[in-house]
Design a protein around this nucleic acid. Structure first.
Lengths: 309, 309
DNA sequence: TCACTTGGATCGATTTCGACGATCCATTAG
DNA sequence: CTAATGGATCGTCGAAATCGATCCAAGTGA
């Protein structure tokens, strides 16, 4: 660009006031500065912008008058962009790019996002669902600002704020022989046919629960989709281990399932907010995180059964 | 403005290439310069624009991506303004603000402007008519770029390019007792009733013709309008002195007039282009001046009778 | 595993540019 | 003729941009 914002500002001020001195006063500058800036602007553009009247100010040339109009709209445009930029960081407004672990999304996000938008009407939420690896890629690629997920396989460059612990439960068919038990132990389940939620990071978690207890599950069926797991369980294919427990005992095909606490004190899944470490967060993101802390508590997660239920 | 064009340019280059180094290469700059500029931009805007990947470039944050779009349109706008500015001075295009002495305008400007516009279709001509004092005010106030007028009462700050000399003629009715003469002298005319074109500067010129010859005109009627003068002459109110001679011997009311050369060698009116001294002229103005020199010659002025006719 | 490569961040030196006070100069008012 | 007005110019100062050199972290390949 052959000119600067400062030069345009001084030029507009002088053009509108018809005086370098007044322009300087109104621009928090001095007369020599404005005079030099305008002279330089004329030189670089090769356009005579003013007619100088000795000891009585200046008037715009025809070209100066036309350029003035253009300069004003450009400056207005620039301050709109400036305003936009500050809004990006300083106001709870604009778009929040939220990512969520696929298995959690249908349970948690609807009410969470609805309440957040009710509280902050100027914010649009852009929700993307993905598996854990995809979430990390999105965070690192700047495609999402924050991810709602479990603290599984999180590298050091990812910051994680825990929101709630979800202990594992056994999921069995309503007509399963263990369905009426108050609770059940891993040892009892181990020989039974196991239906594994076979997703990149959850897989290792479920298996580790058994191996850490010196057991080995009898994996007979696998699926990547929680709803398929529930339907398989309801249809007697075996049992499953789940942490997120929907507020319904009906599978998608109408079959019934039951969730049972596990007797052992097992390491829970930790639900929380993952974001890239070391990036300055926007006020919109801060507001969203605060909202999550209020809405998703250790005592309960919207869309899921609470621990004591 | 909290940011500069340079910063935006570097930011856009880096955002589109995903690399500070490539951005620097494409911007005729160096990597530390671009790095520092972006860092400063982020600091002043309070917005994190990039996620830095060690040893493998950077990606835009969600905010960075949105700001990038705004920055690009702003830069495009700025270069349009820059282009506009250079067009103002470097191309025969845009608007030419032309002023013309009222008495000359109907005779000279129609064909002059028509031919000029045919030669330069990208130019609009904005024509304003005024008396001599008004022309000077328009030039000094930057309202017009050039004035087509006589070299009467021109102060030192006005530049004048002569185009053609218009010697004074006597204007008499077709049935006037002198109408059939080949030429007449001022002395013969002096006693006759004189109809004076009573305009600020022409007035002094006409009277000076007589006083410089030791004569005094017998002014019986005055008017500010050349067409009124011609009608008065045609109706026998007296004679008039004129320099601009229309290509017709009919006055507006249908009466006939005759123009006669004057026997004396009298100082002619000098038709030319007046402009403000010391202002850099645009290429459009240069083209117009050249066109005038070609079109308005000592041998003839469009719309007027030529000297030898 | 270790050296190499990649690519952004940082440092220090240089230079450029903007800002300012003082002054000059031409015009206008009284 | 003097004072006031108001832009142009000059010299100085300081902030900021620029650059080469260097640092450092992460990925790559032997």
């Amino acid at each position: 660009m052959r000119f600067s914002f400062r030069q345009l500002e001084y030029f507009v001020a002088a053009g509108e006031s018809g005086s370098v001195t007044r322009a300087a006063a109104g621009s928090h500058s001095t007369q020599p500065t404005v005079s030099a800036a305008i002279a330089k602007l004329e030189r670089t553009l090769g356009v005579q912008l003013f007619v100088r009247h000795h000891a009585q100010g200046l008037s715009l040339t025809p070209e100066g008058r036309r350029f003035l109009a253009e300069a004003k709209t450009l400056l207005r445009h620039a301050s709109e962009v400036e305003r936009f930029a500050t809004t990006l960081s300083d106001e709870v407004a604009g778009t929040l790019d939220l990512a969520c672990l696929v298995t959690l999304a249908p349970l948690v996000t609807p009410s969470l996002v609805r309440e957040f938008r009710a509280e902050h009407p100027r914010v649009q939420v852009e929700l993307v669902e993905s598996h854990q690896q995809g979430l990390l890629e999105r965070l690192r690629g700047g495609l999402s600002s924050v991810a709602l997920t479990y603290d599984l396989q999180l590298p050091a460059d990812i910051d994680f704020e825990p929101l709630a612990d979800l202990p594992p439960h056994a999921l069995v068919a309503a007509d399963h022989r263990l369905a009426l038990r108050k609770r059940v132990s891993l040892a009892e389940l181990a020989p039974e046919p196991h239906i594994l939620l076979d997703l990149p990071t959850s897989r290792e978690y479920f298996l580790s629960l058994f191996t850490e207890a010196g057991l080995e599950p009898n994996v007979t069926t696998r699926s990547e989709h929680p709803e398929t797991i529930r339907t398989l369980v309801a249809n007697g294919f075996g049992y499953a281990i789940v942490n997120a427990r929907p507020r319904t005992d009906t599978a998608l095909d109408g079959g019934r399932v039951v969730t049972l606490p596990l007797r052992e004190q097992l390491r829970p899944m930790r639900l929380g907010l993952a974001s890239l470490r070391g990036i300055r967060e926007t006020r919109t993101l801060t507001a969203f995180k605060e909202h999550c802390h209020r809405s998703i508590t250790p005592a309960g997660v919207p869309g899921m059964l609470s621990p004591e239920e």
